[in-house]
Design a binder for these strands. Structure first.
Length: 860
RNA sequence: GCCCAGGUGGCGGAAUUGGUAGACGCGCAGGUUUCAGGUACCUGUGGCCGCAAGGCCGUGGAAGUUCGAGUCUUCUCCUGGGCACCA
């Protein structure tokens, strides 16, 4: 049996598209624009299945939109700065630039093999001075407008490697490379003022109606606007009674529960905690212990809640007789509110757990509306619902919201505090003490302070001659790079050696794609034409940080005149990951899938020595667990179209996809089946120009209607990212075309139209095969240039429909009725069914529910 | 710990607004073709009972609303993503 020669075919069509510059775009006043963007890849070495899935989806959208008449921008670039390049430099002695550009070369080739409809003329790499010089200019603009600033903040410090560690590099409190216990250290760092837009970033989420609801929710919670109050407490030494000079300010969202306060707690990094630790060795030791946890919020929050009683006491503002102990506690975050809290165990579960642990009082101050206030007590569970205030002096009897308002008034009146709004969102620390990133373009001068690098001197380029043999930041070690003269006073000064977080690089690349070679960061005409991105596609793991930073950056760029919009991504789709089973040998070492042989009984052995292999559950493909399948191998063996089809079939795009060999083979079989349907059709195919026969026989009519239902359905599916459903529909259509009987004129005609429709509909998904079949069907035009087919609405409505008949909600049969048949007719047909009579068992119907064109339910 | 998702046959999944659960595919079984393997094609395939007709059960679990629940409500279990220096 002859097979589709994908190798020759895919290369040939890729060459044709490239030669004709089919996907090259520019401004076009004739057609509406459509900007399709997939999150650009990090050049880690080779493309992985996640890339294949992401770029296949994007390409389907791009090709589909193109066919429906849009001027489509679909670019590609490289998120090219980052840690792995430096790790490669340290481990293998390759320069980060060499490693990165070599990876880009490999991956570009691999992406081109996929047949993506990309305008490669717009390719950018963030590690190229032609890109990052503009990023430096943006930074200077932000500095000018107060959106960039410097402050001290905490980092994970590896005392052996003398380097700052990412949270990811801290494993069980130790540095991943050195194994040394990490410390928290304070460093002066550069920040971008994301909080300047807290409200805007939150409120504008409501306008992002083509974003997944869950992503908006996650961002909303991340920004975390809370209405509450600041309260200032007097603090004194519990033994001596000596008062502290400055009051302790806390933030709370439950100022209504102030009369239930039984302790206060400071963050280990609160200035007061530091000052107490200066005179209290145990406090200092406790703080040091907390620091072992590192800076990761997950680690801090998941750790056992512990506190240290400082011996100081906090005075209740409205009850001079009452004092509560002041703790330093590991769960209080310095980054949120004021870094100090008051604890009300009766109405907060964490406070309750803490109070039980340290034997603190629990005073209920809110009771359920119907509860007996005198008898209301707290057991193991805090009462966190709304209710009525008790034991609370001037708040007694008020509902919670009213109590909050009254308390806020009273605090303000007595100058003890005031109502406020705080955000969980923090400013974005962008300083990294690393080489392979965009240099921050400032100079530190003893006399002048921080001096921006003059714009004419941009880019501040990374030096090539760096060494990675010493721990720490190579830029800092470089013999000459940082030694410069102050641009203002001319005296000896020092270049900033911090580079920018790589998230900065990816926060504006979508804008750069509009004018990738412009002399300015953006060409206003171009960004105004192309932005916003109409459809952005990427992994759900970026739901918060990358997307939020990009939203912030767009606003910051607007403020500085580089763009004229607020929201960069009008539509967002978040795809699931590609997963595979994991395998370990008897010693527990991870094995690659192609080292495995599956036995008929379902167990697995190593292919070389047939030793036993334990099969683990399916997880996201990762190099560390070796559960990876190399896309290039798949493309070699089955072709890009097969790989693309498999990525789109079966699993909904937002869900995790389980990679299976059987699945790819199924896709391969369908590719061949489709090819044979055109290459060796089962019956006569009418000529290209053949007119519609006057009358269609039953089979032809049925098929013709399915063609139109399929066009309609697939179009709708592609609009809604239901690629798996679209594939299923096309398969239904080709199944029916394959079964068309004989060579009659109407059959031959519908066979042609059906095949053409199938080829057009599958085109965005399997572009090479579709081009090939389109040509085989006698067309000279590129399918890529052919408009999307349209469904005839008249052919979408069925005249006869089958509806179910239930008795007491259980299906007992079906009836065929004309569309919109009248109620009496449907009811009598339903009641006449054998199965219905049997189920009614002689009982008269109490009620017959007829839902037109849907269902009949007989209630007896 | 906190925030956000997802759980439907042996497997991936389908099921406009609450209205015939299991489309389409994988796998499996039987058959045709073939020297054989593979390919291709045909038939069957949620579970249980039954010779059959047919019946009962069935969308992670428990309860509820409804003539009717995969879909709505409450509780619960499991799995995944994120938690600010991985990208």
């Amino acid at each position: 049996m002859s097979r589709y020669n994908f190798k020759e075919c895919e290369a040939r069509w890729q060459a044709v598209w490239a030669e004709r510059e089919t996907f090259r775009v520019g401004e076009d006043s004739e057609r509406p624009k459509y900007y399709v963007l997939e999150m650009f890849p990090y050049p880690s070495g080779r493309i992985h299945m996640g890339h294949v899935r992401n770029y296949t989806m994007g390409d389907v959208v791009a090709r589909y939109r193109r066919a429906t008449g849009y001027n489509v921008l679909h670019p590609m670039g490289w998120d090219a700065f980052g840690l792995p390049a430096e790790n490669a430099a340290m481990e293998r002695g390759i320069h980060p630039a060499e490693w990165t550009y070599s990876n880009i070369g490999t991956m570009r080739g691999q992406l081109k093999q996929m047949g993506l409809s990309i305008d490669w003329a717009r390719e950018i790499a963030t590690c190229h001075p032609g890109y990052y010089r503009h990023q430096q200019e943006l930074f200077l603009d932000f500095l000018d407008s107060g959106l960039a600033y410097r402050k001290e903040s905490w980092v994970n410090w590896d005392p052996v490697d003398h380097t700052v560690l990412a949270n990811e590099q801290v494993v069980d409190g130790r540095g991943w490379r050195s194994g040394a216990l990490i410390e928290r250290r304070k460093l002066a760092q550069w920040f971008l003022r994301t909080t300047a837009y807290s409200d805007e970033l939150l409120d504008a989420l409501a306008t992002l109606d083509r974003w997944p609801e869950r992503v908006r929710l996650m961002q909303e919670n991340w920004i975390g606007r809370s209405e509450g109050a600041y309260i200032r407490f007097a603090v004194s030494n519990g033994r001596t009674g000596t008062p502290l000079e400055a009051p302790l300010e806390v933030f709370t969202t439950r100022h209504d529960t102030l009369f239930g306060m039984t302790f206060c707690a400071l963050s280990p990094h609160h200035p007061l905690a530091a000052s107490l630790a200066g005179k209290d060795k145990k406090a200092a030791a406790f703080i040091a212990e907390c620091d072992r946890l590192g800076t990761s919020e997950a680690a801090i929050e998941a750790a056992e809640k512990v506190g240290y009683d400082t011996g100081f006491v906090v005075h209740h503002p409205f009850d001079s007789d009452r004092t509560v102990p002041l703790y330093i506690a590991n769960f209080v975050l310095m980054e949120y509110g004021t870094g100090a809290v008051f604890g009300c165990p009766a109405h907060d579960q964490r406070d309750l757990d803490f109070a039980r642990k340290y034997g603190l009082d629990v005073i209920p101050v809110v009771a359920p509306r119907k509860a007996d206030a005198a008898a209301f007590a707290i057991g193991d569970e805090a009462f966190v619902d709304d209710g009525v205030l008790i034991n609370s002096d001037f708040l007694d009897g008020l509902e919670v919201p009213a109590a909050k308002a009254r308390m806020a008034e009273r605090l303000a009146a007595d100058s003890l505090g005031e109502a406020t709004t705080v955000y969980r969102l923090r400013d974005w620390g962008i300083s990294r003490q690393r080489y392979w990133g965009c240099p921050i373009p400032v100079i530190h001068c003893e006399g002048c302070g921080i001096v921006p690098v003059p714009r004419a001197e941009l880019p501040v380029a990374l030096p090539d001659d760096v060494a990675f043999d010493k721990p720490g930041n190579p830029l800092d070690h470089h013999p000459t790079w940082k030694h410069v003269d102050c641009p203002q006073c001319g005296t000896k000064a020092r270049r900033e050696t911090d580079t920018m977080d790589t998230f900065v690089d990816s926060s504006w690349y979508f804008a750069r794609f509009c004018s990738p070679r412009a002399e300015q960061p953006t060409d206003r005409r171009q960004v105004d034409y192309w932005l916003p991105v109409d459809q952005y596609i990427g992994g759900i793991e970026h739901a918060i940080l990358h997307l939020l930073y990009s939203r912030f950056f767009t606003r910051a760029m607007r403020k500085c005149g580089h763009v004229s919009l607020d929201e960069p991504f009008a539509g967002l789709f978040t795809q699931g990951m590609v997963c595979h089973e994991t395998y370990r040998d008897q010693r527990g070492a991870w094995l690659f899938p192609d080292q495995i042989e599956r036995l008929p009984d379902g167990t697995a052995v190593k292919a070389d020595d047939h030793s036993r292999v334990s099969v683990g559950r399916s997880e996201s493909m990762s190099k560390s667990k070796r559960n990876v399948v190399d896309p290039e191998r798949i493309i070699e063996a089955f072709g890009a179209d097969t790989a693309r089809l498999f990525m789109l079939s079966d699993t909904p795009p937002e869900r995790d996809l389980e990679w299976t060999e059987a699945g790819i083979e199924g896709a391969w079989r369908y590719v061949n089946r489709l090819w044979r349907m055109v290459d060796q059709p089962a019956g006569a195919v009418a000529p290209r120009e053949a007119a519609r026969p006057d009358a269609l026989s039953g089979a032809a009519d049925q098929a013709w209607r399915l063609v139109h239902r399929t066009i309609h359905g697939v179009t709708d599916d592609l609009d809604k990212f239901r690629f798996n459903r679209a594939v299923a529909r096309i398969r239904e259509l080709t199944n029916l075309i394959g079964e068309l009987p004989g060579d009659g004129g109407d059959i031959a005609w519908v066979r042609r139209r059906g095949l053409e429709a199938a080829v057009q509909l599958i085109g965005p998904m399997m572009p090479h095969l579709a081009e090939e079949l389109w040509r085989s069907l006698g067309h000279e035009t590129l399918l890529a240039d052919v408009p999307w087919p349209a469904a005839d609405p008249a052919l979408l409505v069925e005249e006869t429909i089958t509806i179910g008949v239930q008795v007491n909600g259980k299906l007992r049969g079906t009836i065929d009725v004309p569309r919109d048949a009248d109620r009496e007719m449907v009811e009598s047909l339903a009641l006449a069914l054998d199965g219905v009579q049997r189920a009614m068992d002689g009982r008269p119907p109490r009620k017959v529910i007829v839902v037109p064109n849907k269902i009949v339910n007989v209630v007896v």
